[in-house]
Design a protein around this nucleic acid. Structure first.
Ligand SMILES: [Zn+2]
Ligand SMILES: [Zn+2]
Length: 821
DNA sequence: AGCACGCCGACT
DNA sequence: GTCGGCGTGCTC
């Protein structure tokens, strides 16, 4: 078939695709998955993606042709486009949103508008003063971008004046598309003379008689390149030549000036790891690992997805490596997903030692050129077989995925939070694996409730690895009653005397200490200092959040609110405390108590760059620092050999997150930080400070009892209608006018209740109810797990379409968070 | 998302 | 009057 029309995905948050006609000269070469340049709107050029080709004219009158093709072959392959479509539907985002999230931005060429003076301008034209200002700002001989002109004229309204100049035909406006991808090149040296012409070679040596250094450099070059021998000429880089000859750049430039040697740029890959040692065999598995690996293979015979529940330090990574080897031996590919924060050099080096150049790393913080090279390498099957990557690596062009490993599957950072599509990389990766008929391995020491339920129900296979490495015992975990310590005045700052003594003890034995301190962010809560009571929503079972402006306690799920009580409803104490507002200076306190200890801090402020993060970690690893104070970051995927004590300063913050997963997450986090304590031969200690030593999660953490946590949580999830029994969809509404968004949300809630009755919660004012002059409301929809979520999403979309058909609500912006975390 | 169009108040 | 503010609607 000769296609006449193309459905093009645009990099914009608009529903659907746009139909462009295929010009005749392109009709034989266009293919699905190619990038095209198209005009969209008045002038703008965009890079779109061809989703379909067909023959059916659209019913719009104005069909534009494809402006040009950017690719000779498709840059996206079939499974990817199917995957995009699934993601857009499931997460209720537009295909354009998925496109923007999926493709490295360097492959999405940006439009640039250029303005130049019209050389044939009518000299009799008169300009207004503002027009002249623009005219004078345009360079005489060169085209300028709009941004340049705005800067030069210091006027935000330059655009309007450019337009009036354009109307007078005084300037020419053109659109260009610029490619930002630049291959890395190295400077190479080659001969500028004909080596087979003996005469010429002779003359050169004559000429260099009085230039001793140049002659010696030339000889080094001939030596390295074997130019005059019968063997094949070897390429020589400028750097090698200068190093081997010991000559300066000036000497080389002399030869270049004399047209004896010549420099040229050679593109090189950015993907080469520094592999100094030869590849190593994978470590062999111990008895327990072997057993686990065998049952893993057994489970895969009947199940696509298998949960590997292995305690910390049980050696899950070795099992992963063995599974990877098996899959790549068949010529298939592997995606190894880790949470962003766990993508450390510790891990990449470990894998690179075994897999060498078959291993590729992919990470959203990587520079775009590197990401493009990984993309193209996979696309053109140039050798990468294993991708170790964070969330966004699910979008890479895998031709034949055989295995997807999702490490730390319970990690909430797998969920994209801030912008659409709000996908969960674990769930999306399982779907991706399904499209490739690939196996999935979910690994964790503390499975998410949803995953564990799937494993118990038989939907997933299930393998347990309970044995830690020999000589490594689980740490001794204990809680410290802060309330009592305060009463007995056995505290200093945020520290109980018990914790301070434990730290001193560890330091005196030359052992290291990790202090875990979680920040609170935007959700302050209220606590009774006497009995540690924290008010909860009676409908949703989550902690109420204190709202300063309204001086109220509000449930951020259903919107239930109550005034701040005067007395504690539990013990009658009359001074409830607002927690989580202060900026605690833990670091200062520690250095005050332990003036001789070397202390470092690891949180988002300090470790906002990968390098900063690695530096702090390495220093602690090598015992250059004694105490590491950190947020969640210290809990993730880091192994330290000499840590004997982990102190949790304020576990209560974890217990009282206004989130139905608070209990689960507290268990996971406390178990994980505990796992940092104790190494070969030494049992570690963990001290958890809390105002509420009777909190149900504490005995579970202390006894390392995942099952009991799972059971109690499942009961609560059932009772209060949460996953895994229900699926959740958050509906966010925003508008510049508070009244409008208020009425829109009330109206939407009313309409939805007709369809979903009491499964609709809200509307509610979110913790940050106003963002950059936008007012927000949220609704929460709960759908029974056994009901079709597709049908529910369709009904939801229809209801919203009806709402937005009404004039005042047209401009209300609505987005969704499916399976929120 | 960007961009044009169109309506309205506030300055020359 | 016109300048420049912003709300509204459309883009194949
Ligand atoms: Zn509630
Ligand atoms: Zn009380």
């Amino acid at each position: 078939m000769t296609p006449r029309f193309a459905e093009v995905i645009m990099p914009l948050p608009i529903e659907g695709t746009f139909t462009y006609s295929v010009p005749e000269e392109l009709s034989s070469i266009v293919k699905i998955g190619m990038r095209v340049v198209v005009t969209f709107g008045t002038h703008r050029l965009y890079t779109g993606i061809i989703q379909y080709l067909h023959l059916i004219p659209p019913d719009t009158k104005n069909v534009k042709p494809i402006f040009s093709l950017l690719d000779e072959e498709a840059i996206l392959i079939r499974p990817q486009l199917d995957f995009w479509e699934w993601m857009a539907t499931y997460y209720m985002a537009s295909l354009g949103d998925v496109y923007v999230a999926a493709l490295p931005s360097g492959l999405r060429l940006e439009n640039e508008t250029l303005i130049r003076r019209n050389p044939e301008v009518d000299k009799t034209l008169s300009f207004s003063s503002r027009e002249s200002r623009i005219w004078n700002a345009i360079s005489e001989d060169r085209a300028c971008s709009i941004q340049e002109l705005i800067k030069r004229t210091e006027s935000k309204h330059a655009v309007v004046w450019i337009k009036s100049l354009m109307d007078k035909k005084a300037v020419i406006v053109s659109q260009t598309i610029t490619d930002t991808y630049k291959p890395r090149t190295i400077s190479m040296v080659k001969a500028a003379f004909n080596k087979d012409n003996e005469q010429e070679v002779q003359t050169i040596f004559e000429r260099l008689k009085r230039a001793e250094k140049q002659l010696s450099l030339l000889i080094t070059y001939l030596d390295l390149s074997q130019l005059l021998s019968k063997q094949e000429t070897k390429p020589v880089s400028k750097q090698t030549l200068l190093e081997k000859s010991g000559a300066s750049v000036a000497v080389l430039n002399g030869l270049v000036d004399k047209k004896i040697l010549q420099l040229y740029d050679q593109p090189v890959s950015r993907l080469t790891h520094e592999i100094t040692t030869p590849l190593q065999e994978a470590a062999s598995l111990n008895l327990f690992q072997t057993k686990a690996y065998q049952s893993l293979l057994d489970e895969w015979k009947t199940k696509q997805t298998v949960l590997l529940h292995g305690v910390t330090s049980s050696g899950k990574t070795e099992i992963y490596i063995h599974a990877i080897q098996k899959v790549i031996a068949l010529g298939r590919q592997v995606l190894y997903l880790v949470p962003e924060i766990a993508l450390t050099t510790q891990l990449t080096h470990r894998l690179a030692r075994v897999f060498g150049s078959k291993l590729g790393i992919y990470h959203s913080k990587f520079n775009d050129n590197e990401r493009i090279e990984v993309w193209k390498n996979l696309l053109h099957r140039e050798g990468l077989q294993i991708i170790l990557g964070a969330r966004s690596s699910i979008f890479l062009p895998f031709h034949d995925l055989g295995l997807v490993i999702i490490d730390e599957e319970h990690e909430t950072s797998y969920k994209q939070q801030d912008s659409a599509p709000r996908y969960h990389a674990r769930d999306a990766a399982i779907m991706l694996a399904h499209l490739h008929s690939a196996k999935v391995l979910l690994g964790t020491a503390t499975p998410s409730i949803e995953t564990y339920q799937n494993a118990l129900s038989g939907k997933y296979g299930f393998v347990e690895l309970k044995q830690r490495y020999e000589g490594i015992t689980l740490p001794r975990v204990a809680s410290v009653d802060l309330k009592e310590a305060f009463r007995k005045k056995q505290t200093a700052g945020h520290f109980s005397d018990t914790l301070i003594e434990a730290i001193s003890g560890a330091l005196s034995r030359r052992e290291q200490v990790i202090l875990f301190h979680n920040r609170r962010g935007y959700a302050p809560y209220v606590e009774c200092p006497q009995c540690a009571y924290v008010p909860k929503c009676k409908y949703c079972d989550v902690s109420l959040t204190y709202h300063k402006q309204q001086h109220k306690l509000i449930c951020h799920y259903c919107g239930f609110s109550q005034p701040l009580p005067d007395r504690c409803p539990s013990c009658g104490n009359n001074s409830l405390k607002i927690k989580g507002l202060g900026t605690e200076k833990i670091e200062d306190e520690v250095s005050q108590f332990f003036p001789n200890a070397k202390i470092s801090r690891l949180d988002l402020d300090v470790a906002n760059t990968r390098k900063g993060f690695e530096r702090i970690i390495t220093a602690f690893e090598q015992h250059e620092t004694d105490i590491l104070i950190g947020t969640q970051m210290v809990a993730k995927g880091l192994d330290f050999a000499n840590v004997s004590l982990v102190g949790v300063l304020n576990a209560d913050v974890l217990f009282h997150y206004p989130d139905f997963r608070a209990h689960e997450r507290a268990f996971q986090l406390l178990s994980q930080v505990s796992g940092r304590s104790g190494r070969k031969g030494k049992q570690g200690n963990v001290l958890i400070q809390t105002m509420d030593p009777n909190h149900a999660v504490l005995p579970q953490v202390i006894a390392h009892d995942y099952i009991s946590m799972f059971r109690t949580q499942m009961k609560e999830r059932y009772e209060f209608c949460y996953p895994p029994y229900y699926r959740l969809i958050v509906i966010n509404l925003r508008h510049k006018d508070e009244n409008t968004v208020h009425h829109a949300s009330e109206r939407l809630a009313k309409q939805l209740r007709k369809l979903f009755s009491d499964r609709v919660l809200g509307p509610e004012i979110p913790p940050i109810g106003r963002l950059h002059s936008w007012y927000m409301r949220t609704l929460l929809l709960k759908i029974e797990s056994n009901r079709s979520s597709n049908a529910a999403k369709k009904m939801l979309k229809e209801t919203i379409a009806e709402l937005q058909a009404e004039a005042p609500f047209q401009s209300v912006q609505i987005n969704f968070d499916v399976d929120p975390m």
